[in-house]
Amino acid sequence: MPKGFPFFAKELRLNTTRCPQCGFKAALLTESDFHTCSQCRALFRVFGGQSVSEQYFRHEPDDALAWGALIGLLDSEGVAVPAAATAISFGYHPFWFAELDNGSTRFKTAGSALNGYPQPSVPPPGNLEFPPPGRSFPQPTIAPETFLAQAEVPVRLRLLQLPLYLINFELPGQQCQATVSGCSWQVYLTKIPNETGIHISSSRLLFLGGYVALLLLAGTLAPNVFWRSSLVALILLVAWRLEISGDREG
């Protein structure tokens, strides 16, 4: 036997892991975290010895629709004061989704970008796809083992990329945050905001100011009670008509 043979054999020893898609014992042929299963050709990654398949929900971003879903929900919940968006940002956000050996599942964010925003507690329904070649998604910053308890053993671990809109908005007197899922336009809110503030629009203020000024003018300039009452009644009727027509236009 050649002298160098044992050394050569040692060099050839390959690390293997279970393919998260087909379960095949796949050899890890590259030095990076990215691997291809030699059986089913699925792309998968390895985090701390754990093979992970990455999947995403296909979505075409539409900020207006996401904002519409949020104010539509507020509207339906009876929040009558107007909400104003201060910032809307769309992005894919990584979540760990583990199926454990006892049949239960764990789902938690794998990044820190969602800090402060309401988060989905279960994976949303949708059509999951494997990322096409060349398309990259945000990398997880939270290791998979940190979100699982010590005794929990995942039989399948997935990194799900969720299309989420992070929205900052304000209602009179309060700043709020919401997350809208691009999968089903589901809105995540910590709670439906209370209408604590009082909101008076500038046009309304102008209308009321003009109305009061006209009434004061008519009240002080009118020569007697009859004229005063008549003028006040006339101004009231005109203002009421304006109010009704304004509603119709609005």
Binding site: L215, A222, V232
Partner: peptide, 12 residues
Amino acid sequence: LALIAMVLLGWT
């Protein structure tokens, strides 16, 4: 509108 008119009518 009626309440405002009524109050102002009285005070004037």
